[in-house]
Amino acid sequence: MTLAPETTDLKIQLRLGDDWFTVCDLNVLLPGRGVAALLPDGRQAAVFRDRGGRLYAVDNRDPFGGAAVLSRGLTGSHQGRPFVASPLLKQRFDLETGQCLDDETVRITAYEVRTA
């Protein structure tokens, strides 16, 4: 994969409490797809990059089935809002807020993300 030089050294970081936790190099993320990251306390995050280069991170567990697979879902945008669709039963989650778009009582954790 070839990338513009200015992005190659950038790292993706998630905000965990007051700290920023480094996940991986920015260039590992394929626009439109996610990766899974293991957090220090054993939780998992799904990290995504969209076509415009924006980054998102939400909990990796599918709250309906329990499997840790949201990072493998397809992403898209719905009325301008980014979402990921679970590969298990296709429920969609807003990537900025973690809100489930198909069941208003369900919301998953969304993390703040930055590059550094």
């Binding site: 054993g42 998992q44 939400v58 909990d59 567990r61 709250p63 919301r107 998953i108």
Partner: peptide, 23 residues
């Protein structure tokens, strides 16, 4: 059973090991 560990259950919303939380 591994899949339900730490997941939100209707009667125990506090049992949240990771991520999922009610709005």
């Amino acid at each position: 059973p591994l899949l339900s560990i730490g997941m939100r259950t209707p009667d125990n919303p506090a049992d949240v090991l990771e991520g999922s939380a009610q709005r």
